[in-house]
Design a protein around this nucleic acid. Structure first.
Lengths: 187, 187
DNA sequence: CTGATTATTTATCTTATGTTAATGGATTTG
DNA sequence: CAAATCCATTAACATAAGATAAATAATCAG
């Protein structure tokens, strides 16, 4: 759990009691490549922290598997469109590289908000920063070609290539794997 | 201010004291078409609530005016990428239809978070829901043509057309106004 | 080791959108 | 009120990004 609390401290350091409270509603999971953490149709009731490994969120668009996002070590992953609305999610979470994960029970977490304003503040800040990232991703999608986005992605996450099949990267970029191959081929 | 507190109550109803505290750090503004609420390069220190009128956030991409978002009556507008980071914003806020606006001092508001957890919770929820909207907008941009996005936009905000010049809608959709005209022409 | 999955290559084709330019209507402003 | 500016439409043409299909090569996993 230490690793998790170090990550939290980047946003809002917690008191010992708050950390204990979070520990109590969390569990450690190990999961192997290609396994699912969450399935399509279920309502999201867990926030995951990736200690080690890689995961993605994906969904089906017209029967085609689309990767919405990747998450690496030392990051949170959650299907916010379900977590914050209570609606069932059309999305799934899948492990792409053997992973160690902390699973935080979201229902219990939200209850902790009442007794620990510092915890509410922590997650407010975490999701504010995720929100800001998402806003700037829109700009990237709308005004850059697939090639530019691919290069930007590599800058952002250079080890992505080592860990993730290209077909997932292609769908993340919004193109076919054939197109991605072509992009990679030029030089 | 009543209208604002009704809007707030949709997310998290406030106590009388909390409402008073917010009133104290807010001011009423009226602004005419084409005026600016916020300029490029300034750090965002205000959250606006639109009681009446229309506004947009825009920025320049390669010298071209791009509309990032529109906001209508009964909605919040803020440049979150600056508000949450403290960085100067590359974006501006402009009024598109004569407006009455409540301006909330963000610095003071964030201080209120310490004394009024209910206010922190309120804004947490407001921005969580904005975040969810933004996530789904990405899907719209990546997997729908400009034509589909235009139609979806009209569904979403039917009175947009009456209030906003088409050139702004075009840049919001990521296309030129010539292309938008062509899309509108077919039937 | 062998079948299954994944990646690459090539070739062809589609189509959405950009660019430029001309026009007429609307709106602002001196 | 007239001139000037801005806005939306239309047309003609260009183009380039990416889809699709099919065949091959490489890699992975049981």
């Amino acid at each position: 759990m230490d690793q998790l609390f170090k990550y939290f401290a980047l946003f809002n350091p917690l008191s010992q009691e708050a950390e204990n409270a979070i520990s109590r509603i969390s569990s450690m999971i190990t999961s192997k490549k290609n396994e699912h953490l969450q399935f399509i149709g279920h309502t999201c009731k867990t926030i995951y922290f990736i200690k080690k490994g890689v995961a993605r969120i994906y969904y089906y668009k017209d029967g085609i598997d689309i990767t919405e996002s990747f998450s690496f070590e030392n990051n949170i992953i959650a299907r916010v469109e379900s977590l914050f609305t209570g609606n069932p999610s059309r999305k799934a979470i899948q492990i792409l590289e053997d992973a160690e994960i902390v699973a935080i029970n979201a229902g219990e977490l939200f209850k902790l908000y009442d007794t620990f304003p510092e915890i509410e503040r922590l997650f407010r800040k975490i999701f504010e920063s995720a929100y800001v990232e998402t806003v700037s991703r829109i700009e990237g999608i709308q005004f850059h070609s697939a090639e530019e986005r691919y290069k930007a992605l590599l800058c952002d996450a250079p080890n992505l290539l080592l860990k993730v099949p290209l077909k997932y990267i292609a769908s993340y970029l919004g193109i076919t794997q054939v197109s991605l191959s072509r992009i990679r081929a030029q030089r």
